[in-house]
Each structure stands twice: as structure tokens, then as C-alpha cells.
């Protein structure tokens, strides 16, 4: 009996230790990744943006995307219009990873795009942070976040898939797909006088309900110029004239 107790105690200690080690590993992994991601203070990138949202018909937009850490982002299109989701969080990885002290939970391993990825959850200790929880799928070999799922206090959940090729050193993606929820919008038909020969009465318009539409934004980054020291004034101009 005493020997069985000993064995159980040892097993319990091993299991507990493995959890502690795993948590420590996950925590180290998170902080190392965050350091790598935050090493990019600013960038300028030639981009192609494809917005695919049910009630929005927008052609493929080509332009230049400017980013300055922590949260400034602007797209410029040679005098053309640019459209970016109006979220408190912007669409860079650096902004979807919690800052400050973070509690890291090891979720385990999975396979993503043929690669073995380590999944962790990061919960910021700062209760005022807009980010409530971020789940990150990490390629440990290259130290890259392949997918993130960030739950925010004010902006719902933002999912992001990232593909890397040329800028692995900076953890900057070549292609990002963002999945987001967009509220349906309606304008009175008396105002717009739509051309729709086969129009039928819209029940949603009558009930005034706003449906949520699923949408994706796909950004292809063609060329980066990293840490060139972009000024704040660049982000102040370019608002709607």
C-alpha cells in the first residue's frame, strides 16, 4: 500500500511538472513571438486588397499601406478611395497580440497548412485592455503566428489567417485573410430610388432588424519597406475631403 502511494505521488508530480513546464514553454514562446512581432516599428507596403462582403461591391484595390506601431494604419491609392474596417483594433498582427503582462495557457498542438503548430491562449492581465483573449497558432520552427483569433471587448471577434514567404525574419506576412462580422445596412428606397424591376418587399426593412453579415478582407503584401521611421503626420492626412 505505501509503495502504491509512492508511485501515485511520483506520477502526480510528473504530470504536474509537465503542466508547469508546458505552461512555461508556452509562455516563453508567446513572449519570444511578441518580441519578434513588435520589433517592426513601422512599415510601408505595396498591397492588393480584396474586400468580400455580401452587401458591398468593391473592386480589387491596389495601393500603399502605411503602419506605425502601435495602432496607426493608413492606405493610400493615388487619389483613389481606400476602405479599411473601422475597428479600435487595426489589422496588423502586432495589434491583435495583447501587450503588458499576459497569462499564457498551453492548448496543445495541431496541423495547419501541413505544418505542426503550437496553439496557445493569451489572456491580458490588464482588465482595461480591449483584447479579452487571443488564441494563436504558432509555427515554432520559424516562430510565426499562422492564425489568430482575438476576442475583444468592443469589436467582437476578429479571426486572421497569415501566410509567410519573404519576410519571415520580421514575422511580416505576405498574405493576410481577415474574417469579420459586418452589420447589414439599409437606406429608404424612397431616397435611393433603386433600379430593380423585380423588386419584392423586404421584410427586414419593415422590421428594422440589422442582420450580421460574414465578410473577409484579403490583403496581399507585395513589397515591404520596414522601420524607415514614418512620421505621425502621414497618418493625420488623407481623411475624407
Amino acid at each position: 500500500m505505501p509503495s502504491s502511494f509512492k508511485i501515485l505521488s511520483i506520477l502526480f508530480f510528473i504530470v504536474l511538472n509537465s503542466f508547469v513546464v508546458a505552461a512555461k514553454e508556452a509562455s516563453e514562446l508567446f513572449y519570444t513571438l511578441r518580441t519578434k512581432v513588435l520589433s517592426v516599428k513601422d512599415f510601408t507596403a505595396d498591397v492588393k486588397m480584396k474586400i468580400d462582403i455580401n452587401n458591398m461591391r468593391i473592386p480589387l484595390l491596389k495601393g500603399t499601406l502605411y503602419f506605425k506601431s502601435p495602432d496607426k494604419m493608413r492606405m493610400e491609392r493615388n487619389g483613389g478611395l481606400s476602405i479599411l474596417p473601422k475597428k479600435n483594433i487595426n489589422l496588423t498582427l502586432g495589434n491583435l497580440i495583447p501587450t503588458g503582462n499576459v497569462m499564457v495557457i498551453d492548448v496543445g498542438y495541431d496541423t495547419l497548412a501541413g505544418k505542426r503548430v503550437h496553439i496557445i491562449k493569451a489572456v491580458p492581465e490588464d482588465e482595461l485592455s480591449n483584447i479579452v483573449l487571443t488564441k494563436i497558432w504558432i509555427d515554432e520552427t520559424n516562430l510565426l503566428a499562422m492564425r489568430t483569433e482575438t476576442t475583444t471587448r468592443n469589436d467582437g471577434t476578429v479571426k486572421m489567417n497569415l501566410e509567410f514567404a519573404n519576410y519571415i525574419k520580421y514575422a511580416l506576412p505576405d498574405k493576410v485573410t481577415i474574417f469579420l462580422d459586418v452589420k447589414d445596412f439599409k437606406l429608404p428606397k424612397g431616397v435611393t430610388v433603386d433600379y430593380n424591376v423585380n423588386a419584392t418587399p423586404d421584410t427586414n426593412a419593415k422590421t428594422g432588424k440589422q442582420k450580421l453579415q460574414k465578410g473577409t478582407i484579403q490583403i496581399s503584401y507585395l513589397k515591404y519597406a520596414i522601420n524607415t521611421g514614418l512620421g505621425d503626420e502621414l497618418f493625420a492626412k488623407g481623411k475624407e475631403e
Partner: peptide, 17 residues
């Protein structure tokens, strides 16, 4: 007024008018 529904969710920059 016309673009209220869009402006709530998207930041449109450029020469709209």
C-alpha cells in the same frame, strides 16, 4: 447622412465628394 451605415463600420479615406 447617406453613408451613415457604412461609416459606422468602415473608415473611407479619399476624395468621395
Amino acid at each position: 447622412f447617406v453613408m451613415q451605415g457604412i461609416n459606422e463600420q468602415f473608415d473611407i479615406q479619399g476624395h468621395i465628394l
